[in-house]
Structures are given as structure tokens and as C-alpha cells.
């Protein structure tokens, strides 16, 4: 379609139109094309969105295209040229909106990547400071030689009296040495080696308070001496006897009484540096 032919055609049309100008239609020109209307609507949306902040140069381009399309509409309403220019303005506006979203999302990603990296470092640090005693005590428990409890005092390793001592005696049995060897290894390799250890002897309620008290302290001291001989630092560890004062079960059946006859090693959170 050659431009000057189009101009001449238009001129002829206008002449005819002016002849019939007094007809019912008056001088109404054809309305804007669908494409131009869409371009206008979309541009108005874009101005209120993220495109203005994130992709201003793209939005400006779209604005120029829309301005040109409006000029074409004024010059030649409803024409094919208006349609094409409307399309171009619409696409460029949409491209600006999408570009704005992409840049906004990209900035979020940068922040998220940073957060992930610092979280990674925190996890790595955590894994390094994991206390060694916890791990070794767990293996002891797996061997069903000891029980582990956590309390306000700290960690309590509970060793069965029957494993360690003959009935009513304070001398360590040979089988006791295997168990206590593992305990000694665990305690020595504790990374926070300033933690105080308290060996506590307990008995059941059979016999007098005084006899049970004497037995319990003697047993506690036997365990303490063994651990020191195996390399646990002497000034971290002390021995205490509590006799029948702190049972863990009712002294009614042989099984329960056996449970009460025990030695506990309390690994305190407090340090020995005083």
C-alpha cells in the first residue's frame, strides 16, 4: 500500500464525505482499534506497577510507542497503521511490566542466596561443637551397660551396681573394668574438659542407713580411683555417697532393689577451674 496513493484515496473519500456531511452520521470518525485500546489500558496499569521502579527505561520506550500510536490514530483513525502501532505499544508495555517483575525477583534472589549462605555457615559451626561425650555415652547405652539421663545438673550416666561390684562389696569386679574403660575414654575425650564429674554411690534400703552410706561412698571412691588411674584428671572428679537416700524405684521387689543399687557419674555443666 503506497503512502501517496493512500493519501489521494483519503482525499477523495474526504471530498465525498464532505458532500454528505449533512447526513445523519455527522463527522464521526471511526473509533480506536482494539489494539490501541488495549495498549492504553495496559499502559495505565503499568504506570502503577513495578515497571516504573524497576524498568523505567523500558516503560519510557513503551510510552513513546503509545504516543506515536495516538498520533497515527488522530491522523488516520481505525487504519491498519493504527492497528500495527497499537500492537507495538501494547507489546512494549507488557515487556516493560515483565522486565520489572524479573528485576524485582532477581533482587529477592540475591537476598535469599545471602541468607542461605549464612545458614550454611551456622550449620557447619554447629556440627563442629557437638560434644564428644554425648556420642560415646550413646554407644555405651547401646551396649546396655549404662543409662543416660539429662537433668538440670547436667548429664547423668547411671551404671548398674551388679555390673561393677559383688554383693555388698566395694571392690570392682573384673567385668567392671571393661565398662569403666569406655567411660574413662569418653570422659577424657570430652572437648570441654573442664566439666566437673561427680561419682555418686547409691544403695537399696536393705540394712542400716549408716552401713548403706559407708558402702555407697566406698563404691564411689573405687570408681573414682579407677577413672583417675585411667587418666581422667583428678581435680575434675569427686566421689560422693548418698546411701539409700535417692532411690529410683520402690524398694519392694528384687528387680527394683537392684535398680537402686547403682553408681552415677554426673557430668556437670559447671567447670572445675576454681
Amino acid at each position: 500500500m503506497k503512502q501517496h496513493h493512500h493519501c489521494i484515496t483519503r482525499a477523495v473519500t474526504l471530498c465525498l464525505a464532505s458532500v454528505s456531511a449533512l447526513a445523519a452520521f455527522g463527522c464521526a470518525s471511526p473509533g480506536p482499534t482494539r489494539e490501541l485500546v488495549a495498549a492504553r489500558t495496559t499502559y495505565n496499569q503499568a504506570v502503577h506497577g513495578v515497571a516504573g521502579k524497576e524498568a523505567p527505561e523500558k516503560l519510557y520506550e513503551a510510552k513513546k510507542a503509545l504516543t506515536y500510536a495516538e498520533w497515527v490514530h488522530d491522523d488516520d483513525p481505525g487504519s491498519r497503521e493504527e492497528r500495527h502501532n497499537g500492537y507495538i505499544a501494547l507489546r512494549l508495555t507488557q515487556a516493560a511490566m515483565v522486565e520489572g517483575q524479573a528485576r524485582h525477583a532477581q533482587r529477592d534472589l540475591v537476598a535469599q542466596r545471602g541468607q542461605l549462605e549464612s545458614a550454611r555457615r551456622a550449620v557447619a559451626q554447629m556440627q563442629q561443637t557437638q560434644p564428644q561425650t554425648t556420642v560415646d555415652a550413646v554407644s555405651l547405652c547401646r551396649a546396655r551397660l549404662a543409662q543416660l539421663k539429662e537433668s538440670d545438673e547436667g548429664l547423668t550416666l547411671s551404671l548398674s551396681g551388679a555390673v561393677l561390684f559383688a554383693f555388698n562389696k566395694a571392690t570392682l569386679l573384673p567385668s567392671a573394668e571393661r565398662v569403666l574403660d569406655e567411660v574413662a575414654t569418653a570422659l577424657k575425650s570430652d572437648k570441654q574438659s573442664n566439666r566437673t564429674l561427680t561419682v555418686v554411690g547409691h544403695t537399696d534400703s536393705v540394712g542400716t542407713d549408716a552401713a548403706n552410706q559407708a558402702l555407697s561412698i566406698a563404691r564411689a571412691q573405687a570408681v573414682r580411683n579407677f577413672l583417675i588411674a585411667r587418666g581422667v584428671s583428678a581435680n575434675r572428679i569427686r566421689a560422693v555417697g548418698r546411701g539409700e537416700a535417692q532411690p529410683v524405684a520402690q524398694n519392694d521387689t528384687p528387680e527394683n532393689r537392684a535398680q537402686n543399687r547403682r553408681v552415677e557419674i554426673v557430668i556437670s555443666e559447671r567447670t572445675a577451674s576454681r
Binding site: 500492537y87 507495538i88 507489546r91 507488557q94 515487556a95 515483565v98 522486565e99 524479573a102
Partner: peptide
């Protein structure tokens, strides 16, 4: 006209690609 249309659609394609990548 058509070349300007081509550019407008290409700009849209590029923006959509970048959004998809994020």
C-alpha cells in the same frame, strides 16, 4: 511496521525469558 513489530515481540520474549530464569 513489521520490523518494529518484530522488535516489540522480541523484547517481550527476552523479558519473559529473564523472568523464567529467576
Amino acid at each position: 511496521l513489521l520490523l518494529r513489530r518484530a522488535r516489540a515481540d522480541a523484547e517481550m520474549a527476552g523479558a519473559l525469558a529473564r523472568l523464567g530464569n529467576t
